[in-house]
């Protein structure tokens, strides 16, 4: 009997944790999109007011916004490739840990095409355009999180109970 109880607890805990982790992924995507959007706001301000070089701006953003991997990766990556290539490679490398979707990555990668290589007003327009697209993705991620997180968490527990009932 004791084994059955322990087994049941383990199964329910396992499925519950799985449900919670799935819900956490949705939350992480939403939070990371917000951080990237904030990073772009800082980038816009830095270009507008300090007119500093892009490498300095990228490393400053990564130091201001905690865990903002893309900006950090792009700033420390080898300078033997163009900034556009560095940015795309950084998005590719960090998309997994940031829990971004393929469409999120496509949008963020778009920034690299003109990053640094136009005049100030061109940079601001480019950043604002990408930020607007990211904001749409952020809204979608928030809605997805609000809608699905409770359901996924509930499903995890329910699935555990269901398996236990079936086995017992």
């Amino acid at each position: 009997m004791i084994y059955k109880i322990i087994g049941s607890v383990l199964i329910i805990s396992g499925t519950t944790v799985y449900g919670l982790s799935r819900a956490l992924l949705l939350y992480k995507r939403y939070k990371n999109l917000l951080k990237i959007s904030s990073g772009l706001t800082i980038m816009e301000n830095e270009i507008n007011f300090t007119c500093d070089c892009m490498d300095n701006i990228l490393s400053r953003i990564s130091s201001i916004i905690e865990m903002n991997e893309i900006f950090y990766t792009a700033s420390v990556m080898s300078h033997d490739i163009t900034l556009n290539q560095r940015w795309k490679a950084a998005v590719q490398k960090d998309s997994g840990s940031l829990k971004l979707t393929k469409h999120d990555c496509e949008i963020i990668s778009l920034l690299g095409a003109e990053l640094g290589m136009t005049d100030r007003s061109g940079q601001i327009k480019n950043i604002n355009h990408i930020k607007a697209l990211i904001d749409i993705q952020t809204t979608e991620a928030k809605e997805e999180y609000d809608k699905q997180s409770k359901m996924i968490r509930g499903l995890g527990i329910t699935a555990g109970i269901f398996i236990v009932i079936m086995l017992v």
Binding site: D52, T82, L83, T118, D119, Q123
Partner: peptide, 16 residues
Amino acid sequence: KEAIELISESSLYAFE
């Protein structure tokens, strides 16, 4: 083009 990117440190806007 590559030289321009290198000399402007990928920040042409800073050298307007």
